[in-house]
Design a protein around this nucleic acid. Structure first.
Lengths: 227, 227
DNA sequence: TAGATTGTTAATCGATTAACAATC
DNA sequence: TAGATTGTTAATCGATTAACAATC
């Protein structure tokens, strides 16, 4: 017996990212009242192979039935458990600019149980304001809030010029994970988990793919005549 | 001779995404006046291997010198050329919510030559307003602006419930690429390039990695006793 | 020249797919 | 039971790394 399951082998991060796609899609299926789904159907709707869906899930256990596939609501709950969002997760956001404020308004983060305990900024004009129920504090309050609320995840939504300083500050308060919107590599101690967003990268690769589609690179499509 | 270069083999998308990281970093080096850099140094600063940097660049040509590495400004320009952003790129944004407005304020997109020609929304209270110089139009104006400005890239910044409809609309106007912020898979005709953002996926995988670090999954860390 | 670093090939590593026995 | 679909292994595919000859 003993379901598959995280057996020493680290589950690849790409697999985890796919789990989040399954989760989102299953959430929609739950809402529309779908009861069961096969790996084949789920795969088609998401745009991956059925094999991959089964393999990704197989890392964490056996959730399906050999006759009728997966029970949508059960799988949804299991994925929430695996991803650690079946409970509320407090976070702090540093930077009250457009990204910080957009996050405070994000319904999808709220739906996933993420609770922004405060936005921190240096701009005195913003401090004291409330954004969608989230207070904007002075940076000097960061340490207190992080400790009082037991926050483990910090979001960096400040310009590149300030990002490393903010990261150091967050680490000093005891933060264990950083979601970084500044387009740069942060230097942090071992054990602190960093997830970089690099929003631009998506758009830049889009212009490349567009040109590739139009055959812009074909003119280079030559090897040495003697090869 | 004939530099390496896109020889039938499609360059992997992950490599293209790394090129955007190199670009961003080189941009900072240009600003701080650094003249030359080796693959080793660049790799260390970005957090990849030197081999990989050379291999990624090698897909597109020979840009370095066997003695002194790469000339920063030249490599920067070449990457801009490869990624297709050495010229202005008009885009349209559908959805004037927090994401759409944040994009209109984004300095980094502007710096990369992306020009938002309009934000489109159905909310009559927003139509007619100007966000950081970008007008908000009614959706009925989409077709006209896209054609007048020769826009090839559309950004979807609307809720999931409207996203597929907007995608169909964009495709109908002749848009060739979509940058999609709605957390779902869009169905589009072959030849239309889609880049999905899935912002949440990053944060969700962060909570997973945090739990993984704390050994939450180790309790499953057993195989059948007879294996 | 001697030394350093590139460009590129071959070896390795890891992730995806195909296939199928187990099973509901 | 017969049929469908999972869970899982072996085969394949692709991407990364290591190594080194070419060369500035």
């Amino acid at each position: 017996m003993a379901a598959g399951v995280v057996n020493n082998k680290k589950v690849p991060l790409v697999a985890i990212k796919r789990l989040t796609l399954y989760l989102t899609h299953l959430g929609m299926l739950v809402e529309s009242g779908v009861q069961r789904i096969s790996s084949e159907e789920l795969a088609n709707e998401i745009g991956v192979s059925a094999s991959l869906v089964r393999r990704d899930l197989g890392h964490f256990g056996r959730f399906g039935s050999s006759r009728s596939g997966y029970e949508v609501e059960l799988l949804y709950d299991r994925l929430r458990g695996i991803l650690g969002i079946n409970t509320e997760t407090p976070v702090v956001v540093v930077g009250a600019g457009h990204i910080g404020q957009a996050l405070a308004h994000s319904g999808s983060l709220a739906k996933r149980g993420f609770r922004i305990r405060g936005i921190f900024d240096v701009d005195t004009r913003l401090i004291g304001r409330i954004v969608n129920g989230v207070p904007i504090y002075a940076k000097s309050d960061l340490d207190e809030i992080v400790k009082a609320e037991g926050v483990k995840i910090g979001v960096i939504a400040v310009p590149v010029s300030a990002a490393q300083r903010v990261a150091d500050r967050l680490v000093a308060t005891g933060i264990e994970a950083i979601w970084n919107f500044a387009p740069m590599r942060l230097v942090v101690p071992d054990g602190v988990v960093v997830e970089n967003v690099h929003l631009d990268a998506g758009l830049l690769s889009l212009t490349y793919r567009l040109r590739e589609k139009h055959g812009v690179f074909l003119k280079f499509n030559v090897k040495a005549p003697d090869s």
